[in-house]
Design a protein around this nucleic acid. Structure first.
Lengths: 350, 350
DNA sequence: TTGTAGGCGTTATCAT
DNA sequence: ATGATAACGCCTACAA
């Protein structure tokens, strides 16, 4: 049972308690050099006793540092990807004493620029995390550049070396995934592209093509449909694909949400998955394991990617040298139950 | 192409430009009275010309108002409910010039108190929105009370009149939903309870019982299973229910995520929905319309509830008289395809 | 209706 | 290695 209002301790209280000046306390708090060990100890224990916490507003006013990071994101219906981004970003911020501010965007939108400017200046964030596709929206990146606000892009289409960006090898992963289908005996494999604004879309598409080539399968543009990473577009694309004179026996959707749409469309037509049609997704978000049948997909370490993006961003804000483009993160194919050899099974196929 | 750094205008610049004192500018900015219209206009146009934005840090330091609202939430696997809460809360905050800070919690957790205290003080939020079940976690509400931080609870179990809280009539809605099943001819209707910590769980359960009574159907504890609002618990509960010697022909799950689990379990057993089993959920979150078959459920206006909670909270922070417990929000039954009369259809049933 | 002075809790500058 | 003192930009008294 603590008392009601012990008038939060200030830097002066700590200084007095420790018998030093406020500047020394400030030095200790900010981990600056030029403080004798003994002095530091005195200050530290005073801080503990008084439960002193620096006042963020005063700090910001004086020092120009808000310790705020922004997450500007596209607020789509499908939130599965974003939950992971949020989790990762938040954790990284918290671990470093930063708070996270949210700025949902609805795309396309003529006045993104104003909204983001408002957000960046009004909310006075020091840096901004930009999950795909925003890392590629010039209106946004140019503005932030002009505002001198560092950014960290997650899975941008063309990563600019001077900025922080994290990505994963989703092209390769899509290739493996497609190969898995091919090895099961599928010859006609449909592909649903992701949103053209996302860098991942092109990468995944080319992964698909590479798998075809590698196995001597002809590529047919008929089997490729444009999607937009959401359920509805997946459903529509599946519908078109299944209406083809010679429909594919398997469909690769560029993400789980679209794969869910494919499953839905198949059900509506009374098609059994994977009996009549194999379906794979991408991301291994929550929904993938909740569908029936559970989706074969690719696990993308979104949480860790977001964590890393935020971590690097904050490091940069703190003036540390940042080595952005390490290795891309590794994806992992997750086999579940939405895939099977096409009927009839013909062992002679390979 | 704007210039790089026009040294952001301060209140002094505005005062000078308008030929008044800073206090007058302050009055205008804060909508205080006692400013002649002509003066106000002068100031306003100076503000526009200079693109003046009050410095939030200075404001907070001086005026004790951070214009920050916190959202403390349980960060569960299932994010469907929270996406809506987030959308609503964010919008209400934005509309009023507030920013939203996030504090995800993992329950159960021995040191929630410390985490929340840290969040509340360190992040210096003025008020906190508490979506269920957090409005009922005494460790949290007591702490906030002690810290004198106003809170707004969304769907708390026992709404305390002195606090802000918004809820909906989910008891009644569950009753209607169950009656719909009964009217279709179902006699043995299973029920999966929600997480016992959520107020909504008890309300929904009693709605279920009321429907039974009203139609002269016997209540059987055998047909009721404990769930926790997540997919897995729904699946488990369904499994138990379906293993019963005389399994139910319909199952009411207390939310969509659990209903998804029921669907999954049914599929695993080769049961057809709604042919062999009718299933209903609650919330009408994203997942409900993505499943196969799409779920009959209850649309809970979560976004609007969250919006209202945040709005009322901010009103209170601004010293306005807040009339919390208006009417509960109205829910709405959404009929989709997961329900059908039990086989064989016996028109004589009513 | 308007203005002046003082303070909010830090960090930064420049001594010592 | 440490300390006085001046910003930082605004708001709340209290005058006028």
């Amino acid at each position: 049972m603590a008392e009601a209002g012990p008038k939060k301790a200030t830097i002066f209280d700590v200084a007095e308690q420790a018998g030093v000046s406020i500047k020394t306390v400030s030095r200790v708090v900010n981990d600056e050099s030029n403080v004798r060990d003994a002095t530091r100890e005195k200050v530290l224990s005073a801080i503990r006793e008084l439960r002193y916490k620096p006042n963020a507003a005063a700090r910001e006013l004086s020092g120009k540092r808000s310790r705020l990071v922004g997450l500007v994101y596209e607020n789509a219906q499908e939130f599965n990807y974003l939950k992971d981004v949020l989790d990762g970003t938040l954790e990284a911020c918290e671990a470093r004493g930063y708070s996270l501010l949210l700025c949902p965007l609805t795309l396309p939108n003529p006045d993104i620029t104003e909204r983001v400017r408002e957000f960046a200046t009004q909310a006075r964030v020091e840096g901004i995390v930009l999950p795909a596709p925003l890392g590629d929206v010039a209106a946004v990146t140019a503005l932030l550049h002009q505002l001198r606000i560092p950014l960290a892009a997650i899975a941008p289409k063309d990563p600019r070396p001077e900025e922080i960006n994290v990505s994963c090898n989703d092209g390769e992963a899509t290739c493996s995934l497609t190969e898995y289908l091919i090895e099961q005996g599928h010859q006609a494999i449909g592909f649903i592209e992701g949103h053209p604004d996302h860098g991942a879309s092109a990468a995944r598409f080319s992964g698909y093509r590479r798998a075809l080539e590698r196995h001597g399968l002809a590529f047919s543009a008929l089997l490729v449909r444009q999607g937009y990473f959401d359920f509805d577009s997946g459903k529509t694309a599946a519908s078109e694909l299944l209406d083809l004179p010679k429909p594919p026996s398997a469909i690769v959707a560029s993400n789980d949400d679209m794969a869910a749409g494919v499953l839905f469309e198949a059900r509506e037509r009374g098609l059994s998955v994977p009996g009549d049609l194999s379906v794979v997704g991408f991301d291994d978000t929550q929904i993938a394991s909740r569908m029936w049948p559970p989706l074969t997909t690719v696990r993308q370490p979104i949480v860790r990617m977001a964590q890393t993006a935020a971590k690097l961003l904050i490091d940069k804000l703190n003036g540390e040298a940042v080595h952005s483009s390490d290795q891309p993160f590794e994806c992992e194919v997750v086999i579940r139950k939405s895939t099977a050899p096409p009927v009839p099974v013909t062992p002679l196929d390979h």
